[in-house]
Write a protein that binds this DNA or RNA. Structure first.
Lengths: 223, 223, 223, 223
DNA sequence: CATGAATGAGGGTTCATTCAT
DNA sequence: TATGAATGAACCCTCATTCAT
């Protein structure tokens, strides 16, 4: 909406812009874009309100920069998991573990929450989510699953169903953590880390061709 | 400005608050609470701005009323699925199908999206979500799973992992549909209905003790 | 501001308009013109808000009507106290007593409070006050005082000073009663009736030529 | 919109709140609290509407601050008139003269008008008026009068009657000046300064025990 | 006549953005 | 570069006024 090519504004001197982006990200996640106030962002970055506008043209510009700089580095993890010699099961486990450490244990989950929260106000977010996150992830998981089916490690299931069964719980857990848990009386903490792990194992069990030798802990099973 | 001759006014007068609630709900879902303007809510309900305040004290009151009236009736579906004589597997399928028709095919999914979007600004929403939706649902699914394990229909897994594997994909699909899909270029429509179904079946497969007796839907395809 | 000659609107059927005027007057006195709401006026008159506009064009019209109908009858008491054979002192006492019963004990005092409160927003009120109330009163008292001086009943003082000394305390007491007393913690109720009486007598003493025979109660002194 | 080059900005910045308070006070006096618009207050202070809210939380906050800061310093003149060796008559004259210069000639009279106008909407004003102004004043005057009576300077009258006879005309004159005079066609300017003076002398005459020793100002004129 | 739901202009208040220092 | 006071558009909400019943 704003022509950002007109005045590039000298940015990125010192760490100031990065601190502002961090502050903006955390506030956007906490309160949403519309409810986050510019003063508050500046205050959280330790600068005055006017300084914010030395580095960014507008509040919306902050969001655009966040998408361009932070999201891609934190979220759009490009997996280079080639369908190598390892067991497909382990490759899936690795993918899931990587995601879980980024989304649930790391701080990328907040970005996911923000993406879902603001996607309808800023379609570019929806595009980003689909293009940079979902599509590559689904392709990757699909590739592994197909590879596993070809090598008879997995049953012949629709790859998309595996993608859904593995990726969707992650997303939901991530949103639950950043949207609900901060305020809910934490009597029954759902979607804990261990729960998610056993959830994934349950799905992987359903993928396996041989129900024998089942063990709750993820035991390596060579072909 | 709006053609109000369609319905007799007497009918409409009594329905006014509900129309305003509907308009508010759809706008809150679309833009979030903070970005939804009172004028817009009124306009969508076919009335002027002032009329809104004949029925509701404030914009926030609209949200409170939505929680009290709409959410509980649309979301907090109280399952009366007694652990009856049926197969536990079928009971789980019924629960999941009920949720899917309400959240994905029906219009309750928007409420879920709103709950996640606004929970941090309105903690009462987080409480509602946990108390009325998540906790009962987890209890119900847990009960069925335990029952199935006792009757040796299921493997001995942690009930919570089944809950996560079945409920979290639903939530994520619901959010995907209401947050991302409306604006994303729908090239690869993910989380479709069929996908979700096969996702659930995959999970249920992982639950079953004897893969030989698999249900007809996902036919085994040997390589 | 509103052309009231255009549509006279049938008024004064039954007692409705009078009830509305009464309600408006009391609310104008209590809260001032700007802070008095039309709903409240109608409610106090026992009718609905719409009914008010059957009889009056606007809220301001209510005030205009009050001035025309109520004020003149309640406030602008036309004294016909001819300088008759009575003692001037008694004539002054009668004037003061008449005013006091109307302003302090009666309900005309509220109108005075309203006049002072709204005179700057509605100059017509200031004009009314000067033309209908103050000027005639001052003339009357002046006449009596001059008459008394001529007949050697009074000392030779400036008539205006007597007017001020008699009329201003009345006005102040009237405003005190309607503006301050309703809410002030009535520990020391000032400007009581008895106080005012002795206040007037004190002034009249200052008028008298012969300080002898002074008595606290207003004894008649024949010439 | 306003010529702000007149004063150096640095000077003005520090004076901003006071300028806003002054503007608010004058507008509250002119139109009353409810009819005074925030834009107008800001404009009169030479700033824009938003600036007002940099210094005050709300319009009502402006009134509260006025009470706390301006009223007490302008109105609640603490008299240190000890009952010294001077004649009680002169002490009364001094008190009255002080009040008159503050209320009639100075700008404290507007505050009195505001107090009377808004007391019913803001009871704190009524309390302030009684506690800070009326009660101390009455006590002071009473003390002087009692002292004068003890020393046989005055007749034995009820002190309260003297209070009323001296204070009430001042209040009324003050209200007349700020409520009525600004708009009334000033044909007969009532309550002038000279009038008030002779009014007070008339009252004091009534107080004196021996009319023979009357003070020079009102010379006796025998018929 | 009477009602009260509906209107919409207007007021109080907020807050993204600018700019003089 | 950094500040924070100033701005004013835009919001939420009120309430005088209208009008269909």
């Amino acid at each position: 909406m704003v022509d950002r090519t007109a005045l590039p504004i000298r940015r990125r001197r010192h760490a100031r812009p990065q601190e502002l982006l961090d502050a903006a990200l955390s506030l956007f996640i906490e309160k949403g874009f519309a409810a986050a106030r510019a003063d508050e962002i500046a205050a959280r970055a330790g600068v005055s309100k006017g300084t914010l506008y030395l580095y960014f043209h507008s509040k919306e510009d902050l969001l655009q920069e966040l998408i361009a700089q932070r999201f891609s580095s934190k979220i759009a993890i490009s997996f280079h998991v080639a369908t190598d010699a390892r067991a497909s099961l382990d490759m899936l486990r690795e993918v899931v573990a990587t995601w879980r450490s980024a989304l649930i244990e790391g701080d990328a989950g907040g970005i996911v929450k923000l993406l879902f929260t603001e996607a309808r106000n800023f379609p570019v977010l929806a595009d980003f989510w689909m293009r940079e996150v979902i599509t590559p992830t689904r392709l990757l998981v699909s590739k592994i699953v197909k590879h596993g089916i070809e090598r008879a490690e997995f049953r012949a299931v629709a790859p998309n169903s595996v993608v859904d069964a593995l990726v969707l719980p992650l997303i939901a857990a991530c949103l639950q953590r950043h949207a609900i848990n901060p305020h809910a009386s934490s009597d029954g903490t759902p979607c804990g880390h261990d729960d998610l792990n056993s959830c994934f194992e349950l799905v992987l069990e359903g993928l396996m061709d041989r129900p024998a030798e089942r063990t709750p802990t993820p035991t390596r099973m060579t072909a």
